[in-house]
Structures are given as C-alpha cells and as structure tokens.
Design a protein around this nucleic acid. Structure first.
Lengths: 232, 232
DNA sequence: TGTACATCAGTGAACGCGCGTTCACTGATGTAC
DNA sequence: TGTACATCAGTGAACGCGCGTTCACTGATGTAC
C-alpha cells in the first residue's frame, strides 16, 4: 500500500531530522571537532550503530549540518532583504549585514563551521557549494540592482581594478550581472569586510576591547556601503 | 657549580624548544584539535609521561604555541613596517597587509589558531593578551603617525562615528594616540577588512572562485587604505 | 678531593575514557499472491 | 482475507584505536660539607 509506505518513510524522515537537530545542538556546545555519532545516538536513546541506518558516516552528518547551516543563514539573509523597499539599496545592504551578524551571534558554532577554520580531516563535498552562495547571491542582487538603477557610484579616488580580474571571479561575477570590474572588486571588499567584522566579534578579537559592538558594526557597515558606492 | 647548573638548564630550555617545534609541526598538519601530547612525545622518542616534566598539561602547550604565533606574526609585521620610509604611510599599510597575508599563507594552522574559530574547551589565559596586540600595535602606529603628519584625511561622505565610541575601544584607542574617533572607527574597518580578506582566502571561501588572489588582495587593501584616509 | 645527600629527567605500567565502524542477529513492518 | 516472503530498523558485542593524566620507580646529574 502506498499510504503505509510513506508512513515508514515519514518516520524515517522524522528520525533524520531528530538526529540532525541533536547533532546541531551538540555542535553548539562542543564545536565541530567534538561532534560524535556515539553522543548523538546516546541522546537519541539508540545504540550507536543504529545511526548508520541514517547516515553512512560521521562526515556525512557533518556535511548535512553544513548544508543546513548555509541554508539557514541564506534564508535569514533573504528574509532581511525582502523586508526592505526594493530601491533602498543602502537599507538592503545594512539589513543583510545585520542579518548575518544576528544569525552568527545566535549560532556561533554553526557560523564557525561555515566561515571559521576548516575542520581538520574533513573535505567539503560538491553538495555544499550551491547552498554556500545563497547569502552571497542576495548581496550580489543588491549590487546588481543598485548598478542598474544608476545608484552605484564609486567614491572618488578609487584605485582601478587589477587587469587580471576580467578573467577571474566568474562565480562572483555571475551573482552580480552587468556590474563592471571596479564594482565587483568593491563588492568583494565590502563582503569580506562584513565577515571580517563578524568573525572578529565572534572569535574573541573584540574581547576586553569593544563593548558597543552593535553600534560599531552598524557604523562600519555603513562605511563599507559607501566604499562600495551605495548612496549615503 | 654555576656553569653546570646552567648546563642542565640549557638542556632543559633546548628540550622545551624542541617540544614546541614538534608541536608546531603537528599543528601544521593536524590542526589544533589534533595536537596531542602523546604524539609529540612519540616523535621526541620519549615516553608520553615525560612531557609533563616540561608542560603541566596539553592546554599549557597550546598556550605556548598561541603566544609564539602572535609573536611570530607580530615580528613579521614589525619587520615589514620597518623596511618602509617612515612617511610613506600608504606603503607601510600595504606592507603590513602583505606581511599578514604572507605569514598566514605560510602558517595556515597557526593563523587559524590565532584568528579562526576558538578551540573548543580551551580558554586563553591572560598571558596571551599582550602578544595578541603586537601586530595591531604596528598598525596603530601607522595610523597615528599619518594623523600627526596631517596625512589622514577622511574620504568625503564618511558617516560620523557612533557617539558611544568615545567611552569604548580603550585598547584600540591607546594603540593610536591622538587619532580622533572617526579615524579610530575607520581604522577598525580597515583592520577587520584585512583579516576578513585573509580569512576568506585561507578558510576556503575563494576556492573555485578567485584565482588571482595576490592581485585582488593588493587592490582591496589599497581601497581600504583610501577608506581609512591614507593618501593615494 | 671525596663522599652523602638532594634534585631532577625519564621510564613503564596503569586508569578510565571516548571514538568510528563492522557484523551477525532478532523482530517488526510492509508486499505479493 | 490470509499466508509466505522480503525489506528494513534497531540490538549488542566486538575490533582497534587514541587520548590526557597519575604514580611509584630507577639512574643520572648536581650540591654541600
């Protein structure tokens, strides 16, 4: 029967979800290196070998967590962007920045998994590439929209982009169609600047130093927005 | 006798150095989580418990590596800065950027230890704070020197710094005396932007995307230098 | 200068722990006639 | 509708591994008289 077949499949899907939820929670407390199939099984009330019915190996579980993480961050960024007026490019940029920071602060270990040091001995498979660009795609759309609306004006005195860039950065370029080379490079500055700031805050570089982090963050992102060429 | 006493001490110091060297090499291949006293002892040709004559615990060894790392990076940055004409502020900034990137590429795992995700279960003790600011101190001096020479001119349209900053960021501020608030915030943008760029490159965000990394890096650091207010 | 004693480096065995993964198995759930 | 068979989930034991840390010990190196 079809209904009962999906019944079994539904239980299976639910268990997979439960496993990843527990794994995510363990990630949050122990970090990626401390994620263990045995601990997950223990918390599930299962024997450790039972997990292998659902994930062929620890690395596969980790891959799932990474993909889920990219998607969660990407979705948060998409939502933040969608809540802004389409032609408020500066507002959209700031909203995206804040969404990244908020998500990172709420899920520090997941953020570390995506943007921190690589997990030793783990090589990310191809499946992670597409979700990894989900947040960047939103950013690229903002830049592209602003440029097409004629609102992306390079600040005076900007250095010309390196000549080699024209054959480089195809992925980035494809995310922001029509944007000229100098816009692409400034976008990369802004984007890496955003993550530099978030990583500094999350990884402890601001400890004992900066306390008004939200304010400084907003200010710095605004500065980067100006450098990018968005209207003040 | 005094000479023989120092003889024993000299052997001891040499062994400590040998242990940290091996540990550093293991860090380079396994990452921080994979650093193990037993493996170090094995490579030393010692029994594992013998290490405890030199380091009271694994965390202590890790702390030593972190401090050494900060000092090595700091020294590289100091050397790069010292090789420039004192009044070539833009050149000094770029030299510092390149030194950070070069050191990070040469010592990826050590860089990850300093600026990547925190090692789970490890809390950095007070001793790491001073060496951690060594590179930043060089940068602060450049900014301060440029400002005192009247060569730190904010680009037009820069947003005013948040009011709360005046009571914040004491450590950062103390590294760049006399620099006004808006200069301090722009310095933070530039500094976090530098590490954001290096981390993206090192942690794999540029994989399958950007190939001419040195060129793009130089360009982006130049842009950040302009944003900071350094002369073009 | 020689001897008794204290200090220190390194040994080897052990404790207790956790891990990923495999494998033969028991039962339950679904499928086909 | 009922029965024979196939699929699948979960069990329990085991393999082989590595880890940090402790502890009583042997010898060698230094120190004090």
């Amino acid at each position: 029967m079809n209904a009962s077949r999906t019944a079994r499949e539904r239980v299976r899907a639910e268990l997979i979800r439960e496993i990843t939820d527990i794994a995510r929670r363990q990630l949050a407390t122990e970090g990626a290196a401390g994620l263990s199939l045995r601990a997950v099984a223990r918390e599930m009330g299962m024997v450790s070998s039972a997990i292998y019915r659902y994930f062929p190996s620890r690395d596969d579980l980790l891959t799932t967590l990474i993909i889920d993480g990219y998607n969660a961050l990407g979705e948060a960024v998409e939502r933040a962007d969608a809540a802004c007026a389409r032609d408020d490019f500066t507002g959209r940029w700031l909203a995206v920045c804040r969404a990244v920071r908020a998500w990172a602060l709420a899920h520090p270990h997941e953020y570390a998994l995506l943007y921190g040091s690589p997990v030793p001995g783990y090589a990310a498979p191809q499946d992670t590439i597409a979700p990894a660009t989900r947040d960047t795609a939103v950013f690229g759309r903002i830049v592209s929209d602003a440029h097409r609306a004629g609102r992306l004006t390079p600040p005076p005195g900007c250095p010309p982009p390196p000549a080699v860039l024209s054959q480089d950065a195809e992925v980035v370029r494809s995310l922001m169609p029509d944007v000229p080379d100098d816009g692409v490079t400034r976008a990369i500055v802004a984007w890496t600047g955003l993550f530099g700031m978030v990583s500094f805050e999350l990884f402890g570089q601001f400890n004992n130093t900066i306390t008004h982090r939200a304010e400084l963050f907003d200010h710095n992102m605004t500065s980067l927005g100006r450098l990018l060429g968005l209207p003040g």
